[in-house]
Amino acid sequence: MSHSWALALVLLFATGAEAQVGSAIPSMPARSDSALEATTTMLASELRCPVCQGNSIQDSPSELAQEMRSVIRDQLRAGRTPDEVRAYFVDKYGEWILLAPKAEGFNLVVYLVPILAIVVGGVVVVRTVRRSTTGPAQGA
């Protein structure tokens, strides 16, 4: 196997890593403000990481996700509300970035179908029990 290639890759990635190291200090949590951190974490868990498809930007180890977390933190610090931060990312990336679809319009389907399933299923269960109950065959 071509070791030189592997090494080249290491170097290539070292690049990205270095760029990130240089910038990592400002993204360090501000220890004084735990409420800010909690809101950042909450928002970051709701947003989908663009480069890794499945994870939230809270979970993703990618550099972009890391920067996006710091964007959230900066915007919150600048006085934006969580809704405004969400709106910012939706503006840039589309609804796709929200890991839980906004509960409005057609999206309500995904929230209501499970509830409907429980209600309808509950009615069926009650009816089944009523219809099938013949009373105790013998005393307990």
Binding site: S23, E63, E67, Y93
Partner: peptide
């Protein structure tokens, strides 16, 4: 583009 801020502004995926 320090700290990829412009990239995020442009909704960059990669």
């Amino acid at each position: 583009d320090p700290r990829t801020r412009t990239a995020i502004d442009y909704g960059l995926y990669g």
